[in-house]
Design a protein around this nucleic acid. Structure first.
Lengths: 331, 331
DNA sequence: CTGAAAGCGCTTACAG
DNA sequence: CTGAAAGCGCTTACAG
């Protein structure tokens, strides 16, 4: 016989199904006693609201898509959980998917989310083939924000927001120079990608101002790459400090130093980027550019909600402030 | 005018809407030329399938809920991404939510997912008030698996699966004894919780067999607690080894030792639990009980799919094999 | 304050 | 192989 419907509730309560529907929507035009009867009937027969049926008739609201390029990276995990919890607190549900840096998977994921009727999306996109993913959204006319990485240039359609990476690069480099470092490398980040370019740009600008030669060591944003670089610093390169593309690389450098019996700090100053939770917990504690990613996630959720419910289109580009948290890895 | 519907497609292609529906379902009873006409019409007018409407009429399939107690913990992150990607590969969508160890939030989350019409759920539950969460599922008759933590005892309704924690505790303790350790602590895990009890039980059994006095140091499953314990080991306690509740605690102990200028290994042997990715990358590399959580996640996805689509009810309780990965933190 | 009717975009028998 | 009709569980005007 399946789940009870509003018709079953109406029968049990002795009213019409319209009245039940009004109760469901907390309409003020239902008398208190009727409301109570209906609510009781729902309890008794175990009624559950069918949101899909409701959405079919009325405007589609209530489902938001969250598409993340690498959900296993703690920086993105923290972002995604903050967004999801804020959206859920606002009464929306979230479909989350990890696209694993795979453009084809991202395109399929977005197609599936559109079919499932999401009202809007927040996308931390993969690099590559943006047309396959963003083209569908443009045609469907679904509000979508791109965050953390600017991949589509159509920021009129897909407003972009991220922490101010360039400013973070500046802060890191200035701090190292102020601490006395002079031979400063920039470690990690895949060449040509927007986030890499931006994080490097602040570093490059500061070094140029001080007449210091930059040393770029591009590479994957992983602990493993950081460990490799630690060996290069110890065996071959003449550096006294490094700004890392992210904290994972920095933690890799730090652990590489440890495995060679050395400790980053005064002799080799190290700065990470993102300030993931682990940065403060590792030994030595890691100096890092703090993006306050949980707060950023909550802001993005609020921005999308305002877009969906009040039609407030976000600014095409928005950069949030960052700051440097100094710990003993650089002092 | 809104999005095009199958009626618009039917008009554009010059067929009835039933035929369009059959094309959508890849029914063999539509001629190839008709199918082509219909597909072309869909392209031209920018039709997108409305899955909610389809589900309303046919059996509800296609949406699976994934409810996770602490999505920021890398162990659960790795589990959740494995499940989500396997489910998505099977053509289902996933609604994911982090319940943040909050029973009330878990109950609200599950209620919302039921309203959104999930066909089934995979739940790594929070401890406490299980009736509020599982009661709804029982009444709604929705297939749901509890994984990683056994919270509801109704395993007939909510089949339970997890790695074999007790066996993991055994392996860890046996390895330490075989390596020569004699004063072995068990560090972390909140007292009385099922996972703690199980992980401790293997350790306790092995120590009893060898006539060794156990030393339980219960506590939060975090890096911070691990660091605290490192100080206690160095300053006060007479121990030569520890089995940790999870890798986070173990990494905390290891980093606590490092901050005191010492390195875990021969002088103090350390074993973690879960074998998260970081275990192999940290210094010194961490010996850990490997649960192969990604594979476990894919298995759970397959089990739920089989339940939903073929009615194969999972066994009430299932434990998957674990193994010990020995690295230098214990040798 | 409440009821009867139409409709949201699909699928599902049932004819032809 | 294709079409006309009913129905999935709601909401939305419109009467009363």
């Amino acid at each position: 016989m399946g789940r009870p419907t509003i018709i079953d509730v109406a029968k049990a309560a002795g009213v019409s199904k319209s009245t039940v529907s009004l109760v469901l929507q907390n309409s003020p035009s239902v008398s208190d006693s009727t409301r109570k009867d209906v609510r009781r009937a729902m309890q008794e027969i175990g009624y559950v609201y069918n949101r899909a049926a409701a959405n079919l008739r009325s405007a589609q609201i209530g489902l938001v898509g969250l598409v993340i390029n690498d959900l296993k990276n703690p920086f993105f995990t923290e972002f995604a959980t903050a967004v999801q919890m804020a959206i859920s607190a606002a009464g929306y549900a979230t479909v989350v998917a990890n696209t694993n840096e795979d453009p084809a998977l991202q395109a399929r994921t977005i197609a599936a989310m559109i079919e499932h009727g999401v009202s809007g999306l927040i996308i931390s996109p993969v690099y590559g083939d943006e047309e396959a993913s963003f083209g569908q959204l443009a045609r469907a006319g679904i509000p979508a924000m791109q965050v953390l990485r600017k991949v589509s240039l159509r920021t009129d359609l897909f407003p972009f927001a991220s922490p101010d990476y360039a400013a973070g690069g500046r802060l890191a480099a200035e701090h190292l120079i102020a601490s006395g470092a002079r031979r400063i490398a920039f470690v990690g980040g895949i060449e040509g990608r927007s986030v890499t370019t931006e994080r490097q740009s602040g570093y490059l600008a500061v070094l140029a101002e001080h007449g210091i030669e930059p040393r770029l060591m591009p590479g994957r944003p992983t602990r493993a790459f950081g460990r490799e670089c630690a060996d290069r610093f110890i065996d071959a390169l003449d550096c006294d400090a490094a700004v890392c593309f992210n904290d994972l690389v920095a933690l890799g450098v730090s652990s590489g130093f440890a495995s060679r019996g050395r400790v980053v700090g005064r002799e080799f100053r190290l700065v990470g980027f993102d300030d993931i939770e682990e940065a403060a917990q590792s030994y030595p504690p890691l100096t890092s550019v703090q993006c306050d990613i949980a707060r950023f996630g909550r802001d993005m959720a609020a921005t999308l909600m305002a877009w969906l419910s009040a039609g407030e289109v976000p600014a095409p580009e928005n950069r949030s402030a960052v700051k440097l948290v100094v710990r003993s890895s650089s002092a």
